[in-house]
Amino acid sequence: MSDVKLPLYGEMADPTPKISVRGLDFFYGDHQALFSNDIDIAPNRVTAVIGPSGCGKSTHLRVYNRIFELYREQRVKGAVLLNGENIFAPTVKLLDLRRRVGMIFQKPTPFPMSVFENVAYGIRLHYAVSKSELDGRVEEALKGAALWEEVRDLLNRPGTALSGGQQQRLCIARAIAVEPEVLLMDEPTSAIDPIATAKIEELVEGLKGKYTIVIVTHNMQQAARISDFTAFFFKGYIIEFGATKQIFTNPHNKKTEEYITGRFG
């Protein structure tokens, strides 16, 4: 049986990818940062993106929610399909795309408002809800981000008054409050301490039941621990992509092996 439509991650997950990227090139002005990237992101799984600094991991992620379009000199070529629909098609509504594809950054980015308002921000943006329903949704999102117990009495405090790890979970709560399908995380733990990192890793494990997660990390152990699939980026190319276990135990490419064993990067 020769199934030509098998996704790039093989048979280990849902045969219809959440996101399919084909022939993606990316340009910062004249500088090309990504070269014909092909990848499939499995639904309800964690896909790790690894590679040395400057290889294009963040650039690649920033295409999925079209956030790069904020900068006029940045351009893409190629296709990115979300649920089979090209995100660059004129029928796709940009604001709704960004609701469906949430993003968490390296440094926590709480807005200058209270904890409650931070989470309510996106809900108010996309849904018309009553006050009591809003309260419920905020609580639910904070619970989803494993933060509720810690902040239930601090809801009116500024979001910036929380600890770094709590702020990052607040940002996750804010992102999941709008019921996204995909969560993009760009080195979400590199600016916080090991204990807070462990909490976020645990959270990611729990979240993948509901969301599709793509996470950039420089921490090989982290990638091995929490991801199902791993993509290795090098100089703008996706050199190797496959099941995390295979990538870390039996990499096919020599560069991948050198990188994960810490010989460069």
């Binding site: 960004r98 609701r99 950054f105 807005f111 200058p112 709008v178």
Partner: peptide
């Protein structure tokens, strides 16, 4: 920029980012 980006990343319009985030910030 990253704070503004996360506001845009939530699906805000320029106006919403401006008056809810930039102005407050």
């Amino acid at each position: 920029p990253v704070v503004k980006e996360s506001a845009y990343g939530m699906g805000s319009t320029t106006w919403e980012v401006t008056h809810k985030v930039t102005l407050r910030y």
